[in-house]
Computed example of a mutant assay.
Amino acid sequence: MLEEVKEDDDLKNIPIVVLTTSKAEEDILKSYNLHSNAYITKPVDFDQFIKVIKSIEDFWLEVVKLPPK
């Protein structure tokens, strides 16, 4: 899916954050090789999970400057 999105001219500028349970180096490398913008391993603890989601939201919606639509 990631590869298809990044090859589509209408979608390729959409930031993609991979949120997964995998800590495998090969998964991390594959994700970045397919041009994901971030790779985050989900915390097991619910409160930590909420903090991670909030930090993703804050970063992508308030901190970074994205290309115009």
Rank of each mutant, 00 (worst) to 15 (best):
P43C: 02
I28D: 09
I53T: 12
T41D: 02
D47F: 14
H35S: 13
L61M: 09
L29P: 04
D45K: 03
P43A: 07
E62M: 12
S55G: 03
D47M: 11
F49Q: 03
I28W: 14
N37C: 05
F59N: 05
S55D: 04
K30L: 11
H35A: 10
D58G: 03
T41C: 10
I53V: 15
T41P: 00
A38D: 14
A38K: 08
F46M: 06
D45V: 14
I56Q: 05
D58P: 03
L29M: 12
S55A: 02
L34G: 01
S55N: 02
Y39W: 01
I50P: 01
P43S: 00
L61D: 00
D45I: 14
N33M: 12
F46R: 00
S36M: 10
I53W: 04
W60G: 08
S55R: 15
I53N: 00
E62L: 11
Q48G: 06
V44C: 05
N37W: 11
L34Q: 06
E57G: 05
F59Q: 09
H35W: 14
K51C: 08
I28E: 14
A38E: 12
E57F: 11
T41L: 04
I40P: 04
K51Y: 13
L29K: 14
H35M: 12
W60R: 12
F46T: 05
K51P: 03
N33E: 15
N33K: 15
V44K: 12
I53F: 03
I56D: 01
S31A: 15
K42N: 01
A38T: 00
I56Y: 00
K54A: 08
I40A: 08
A38L: 11
N33F: 12
K51L: 14
V44Q: 10
V52A: 02
K30N: 09
N37M: 06
N33G: 06
Y39E: 10
V52Q: 15
K51Q: 08
D47W: 08
L61S: 02
Y32G: 05
K30V: 02
Y39L: 08
L34W: 06
F59D: 04
D47A: 11
P43I: 05
F59S: 08
F59T: 10
I56T: 02
V44R: 11
S31W: 12
E57C: 07
I40W: 00
S55V: 00
K30I: 02
K51V: 06
F49W: 13
P43T: 07
L61Y: 03
D45S: 06
I53R: 05
S36C: 14
I53P: 08
D45Y: 10
E57D: 09
K51T: 05
L34M: 04
L29H: 09
I50V: 10
V52I: 15
D47Q: 11
L29Y: 13
K54E: 15
L61T: 02
L61F: 05
I40K: 03
Y32T: 06
N37H: 13
I28S: 07
V44I: 13
V44G: 04
D58R: 14
F46C: 01
I50N: 01
N37Q: 05
Y32P: 07
S55P: 05
Q48F: 03
